[in-house]
Design a protein around this nucleic acid. Structure first.
Lengths: 146, 146
DNA sequence: GAAGTTTTGTATGTATGCAAATATATTTGC
DNA sequence: GCAAATATATTTGCATACATACAAAACTTC
């Protein structure tokens, strides 16, 4: 009678835990992002602004937050900072008195256009250690996880 | 004359950016961790306690932080919370008057032993959408990124 | 149309995570 | 042996991120 090596659990090693590695990989990317962007926008602010320009129509705060993967409390803070810089504007909905309808300003769209090449460089630098096949594989696997 | 499809950049899609996907995957894992751990320890606190028990000798605050991937400011807060719960103890170094030497308490080691099976279940649940090969592949690719 | 549920936005508290500045102690270079 | 560079720990400020609780408005169901 034999034992399959794959069935022997072995010791708990932090480096073998997805959670730990996800955190470290994310940290590395954030460091690259912050350094390259030079304080123009944070990663979450950039994602939020891109999403808002994609939908390109008035959208509620919570709905936009969901499209970016933020909860309501986080969304409020991010949008407050974007609005303080006139990159996003907000107006009361006529049909739903609870809602604020959000849209990008011209300054917001201009900033995205300016930062887009930088964002591509950031992705490139983050993925630099991987081959083209590995990059595709990583994205596919990450997409399965959420 | 033909054009290689791989050379045509295409539009910028948020879902194709590693940074965005890393953030979402990490969020999903954190949600699983928090729910399963039931408030016993956060993911970072657990990692820190495991690392400290691994080195199993007095270690300085900064050195431990580096082993877990935290900067000095973050490390201080995490350790303060662990010490407030008597999971970690600290004493002044005799040889280096800047350092506090850290070690786990019996309560800290007991808690890790108790939570270890839970941590394995959390990893399992996070990786549930992936096959064994995909899991190994993901870990290998993540390890290359930092 | 009234009751119960859901959605939206807000507020608060806690926990990472980093940048930058500070203070003290140690090590290194010469 | 001393000045310069490093290492350690701390503090502050800002930015996610989530849990929780709340109020107001809208929707569902009967």
């Amino acid at each position: 009678m034999t034992v399959d090596v794959a069935d022997v659990p072995g010791p708990y090693r932090l480096e073998d835990q997805v959670g730990f590695m996800l955190r470290l990989a994310n940290q590395r990317h954030m460091a690259i992002f912050t350094e390259r962007m030079g304080g123009e926008l944070t990663a979450v602010q950039f994602s939020t602004l891109v999403r808002l320009s994609e939908v390109d129509g008035p959208i509620s705060q919570n709905a936009l937050g969901r499209l970016v993967g933020m909860d309501a409390a986080t969304t409020k803070g991010v949008l407050a900072r974007l609005m303080a810089r006139d990159l996003v504007k907000m107006e009361k909905s006529q049909t739903d008195k609870r809602r604020y309808m959000l849209s990008t300003t011209q300054a917001g769209r201009d900033l995205i256009a300016k930062l887009m090449p930088l964002a591509c460089q950031i992705t490139e630098e983050t993925l630099a250690p991987l081959t083209a096949k590995e990059r595709a594989s990583l994205l596919r696997l990450l997409a399965k996880l959420y």
